[in-house]
Amino acid sequence: MAQIIKQKDDNVVAFIFDEKDTLTLDEDKLAVSYTGKIGGEIDMIAPLVNSTTHEIVAGVTPPIRFYGGGFTTYDGSSFTVDTTALNARIAEDPAWVDPPILNIE
């Protein structure tokens, strides 16, 4: 299963993590410790994500691919990709490659 970070106001998904990862969402940032890390070592921080604007949703079945960057929303039960916006983005970026298949069970 996965846990996601999504915006509270429009459900746009910012991140998808394995449930085994440790997430700390507070007032000024998101801090992530990936699975298997010993102690409180932080692997990544995201100052743009905070507990005022975002929330953690756990127990989520992940999609096959995650289109970040504002293209994917989660309404509490399923993911939706804004294909119109995504295709427009792909069209203007000749270097575009699809995101990888998620490796989350």
Binding site: D43, I45, A46, V49, G68, G69, G70
Partner: peptide, 12 residues
């Protein structure tokens, strides 16, 4: 140092 997410989009 700790990796930091600095945008919410991936630019071209």
């Amino acid at each position: 140092d700790t990796v930091t997410v600095v945008t919410t989009y991936a630019p071209s």
